[in-house]
Amino acid sequence: MTKVGVVVFPGTNCESDVIESVRALGGEAEMVWHGDSSLPQLDAVVIPGGFAHGDYLRPGAIAQFSSIMGAVREFADKGGPVVGICNGFQVLTETGLLPGALQKNAGLKFLCQPATLRVETSNSSLTSAAEVGQTLRIPINHFEGNFTCSPETLAQLQDEDRVVVTYVDNPNGSMGDIAGVCNEGRNVVGLMPHPERASNALLGSEDGNVMFTSLLQSALANA
């Protein structure tokens, strides 16, 4: 069975939801403490949402120096699937595993609402089971989700098919309506929306499951 490690920093608060979503689809999942310097035997890593280290200085700024991040970087460099959700996306950009930065939302509102996403590529560890053009209803919950990068980086991401999901109605001012991107190797993906909060009909949407199914497939391929 494929095993997903869910990294927990002080201030992380979505770890149980991610673990539940993975287990509901038949995967194994366990928490990994940020202070550890190595990962257990894993097939995929998720950095979940929350407020790692209180979001002090900038979201993700302190988390990039947590001991576990060295091991996560190594895992990613070897092609292992790594997904950052919301605060996890911010951690991955601060760590340099993903390009760009997440700025304060345009309009300065904390946004907690469902968002409609469009899948832009099925060539990533988070969307391999999805279809290009498919729309997904998945909630967002963030203050700093306004994806920002240089015009050159934006052009590169678009040319290289590395924009993974976009917002149909851009809620936060993100450049290119970007909700999620991947790295060159397509194994590291970050996105602001929370697929774990759309993993059961009781939550109002099951559209997030296609992402966890993709992640488990990528994990299996990596196992």
């Binding site: 302190i62 950009t93 601060e94 390009p99 930065a101 920002t148 990068c149």
Partner: peptide
């Protein structure tokens, strides 16, 4: 390294 995010 830490006080700024050089991207922005």
């Amino acid at each position: 390294k830490v006080l700024t995010n050089p991207v922005i």
